[in-house]
Nucleic acid binder design. Structure first.
Lengths: 254, 254
DNA sequence: TAGCTTAAGCGAACATCGTTTGCTTAAGAG
DNA sequence: CTCTTAAGCAAACGATGTTCGCTTAAGCTA
């Protein structure tokens, strides 16, 4: 079974030398690097583009290798000449979508306004492309474009006065909040509006002795949508970051 | 023998009347409700227990309907007498795991200490049961036990002085931060330690003009682990909540 | 107790899915 | 022109979740 030949003719079916998920890998793609240009029909870009379109138009369940090959007019097995696995394709597509969804903020904003601008913008993009948000949930790694987006915020927070480590944590918390909010919004909106009624029914079954205030304000709480939840969560997180920024400033001053 | 029944005898194979994901549904389970007790071998509890054990011992990929049936000593198709689909089973198992993972905090803590206690405890539980965290990522809804956990925090925040709506948003943000942190921790630890090296390589390719501070502190930032990120994110979020609490108090005082 | 109803359980399929294998074919290097 | 080599392909492989009739026995009614 295991051939003694270390170089079987078609063993390594992908030209890229890097590991599929490593951060340096995506940047290494795209460049045919060596003079060997044998691209006949397919290309990684075409595959990613078609997959993204399939995702947006027909949902995440339509993004199968078969359907993708059909839309590209090739066979399934040909896809594996450009992509190691479906998981790798998932990372690529998610990363490409994020790259398309991120926009540079207008200049001249203070750190807090810029963070709000970026957060709202990215959340809005994800809400407009629900399948991409679902894809983000499924990927096991972040592509370099995604990392770059996070790290831009890190850079900004350092500029605001945070230590590098604190800035990294702040940006990570911000990204977590955005993506989590969208995911919550998705599985809440995915159902019929009777979901709120069901939640309220749950509240009404609560024991008033253990959750006295919940019972009193059940209707009020059940009415909190993901938009309101996100906005207040964002405010709280940025308030907390502001505390840290001020603390650093005080430390520098005193 | 062959009766002219227009309604196929075995059409509705699940006795529970509620929709599979609605919040009122889980509570409605467990009660055999009507006098009809036909349980011969299987039960929803046994299925959920076995699935959870399978999940913890052999990972999320081992939780297939076939393997589950094998461990239970029944056929695959029998499972569908108690569970509508694998997705529903996923929700049930995740919810059960969360119920097991949540513990009551020691009494006498102020709201902030209690929030920290709950957050660290739940995060620790999830880190100890990685497959459960992965399961949470895949579920489209939260089970009632999960909702109850969040809503306990809501109750506590109301007690601290927040408005019900703000308390709901705060608890949601907290839950998002915890789960997001664990998920980040998972796909970071799942890889070989060369991941950090890869990230650092990405940093080194950054344009110093667009990310001047990033380039300077690349090594420092790459060293931030998910533990540190979580702790600082938690601190920031609670600082922000404290700001809101203080604001409410001020509003009441003045 | 006898008889009828009904749901739990089962074997066998069905429709997919992601992936692999061995081959053909043609582009580019020498 | 020849030879190397990678892109592309048809067909299959193994695995998944799920459905379809059927059997069987528990529980209700008489």
């Amino acid at each position: 079974m295991t051939r003694e030949k270390p170089s079987s003719p078609n063993r390594a079916r992908i030209s890229s030398p890097d590991r599929p998920g490593s951060a340096s890998w995506w940047l290494a793609r795209g460049e045919p690097s060596t003079r060997r240009r044998r691209n006949r029909m397919l290309s990684l870009e075409a595959i990613a583009d078609t997959a993204l379109r399939l995702l947006d138009e027909h949902g995440i369940e339509a993004m199968t290798m078969r359907r993708l090959a059909e839309d590209l007019g090739c066979s399934q097995s040909s896809l594996y000449r450009h992509v190691r696995s479906r998981d790798e394709l998932t990372i690529i597509v998610a990363d490409q979508a994020i790259r398309l969804g991120m926009q540079a903020p207008p200049p001249g904003l203070d750190w807090r306004s810029e963070a709000e601008w970026l957060a709202r913008g990215f959340r809005g993009f994800l809400l407009g492309h629900p399948s991409v948000a679902l894809l983000l949930r499924g990927t096991e790694r972040l592509g370099p474009n995604s990392l770059l987006g996070v790290e831009s915020a890190v850079d900004r927070f350092i500029g605001a006065g945070l230590s590098p480590r604190h800035a990294a944590a702040a940006a990570g918390a911000l990204a977590t909040l955005i993506i989590g909010s969208v995911q919550f919004n998705l599985y809440l909106d995915a159902t019929d509006p009777g979901e709120q009624q069901a939640r309220q029914a749950l509240y009404e079954r609560l024991d008033p002795r253990t959750h006295p205030r919940m019972v009193r304000h059940a209707a009020d709480i059940a009415g909190v949508g993901s938009e309101e939840e996100f906005e207040f969560g964002l405010k709280m997180l940025l308030d907390g970051i502001a505390v840290a920024v001020r603390g650093t400033a005080d430390q520098l001053d005193g």
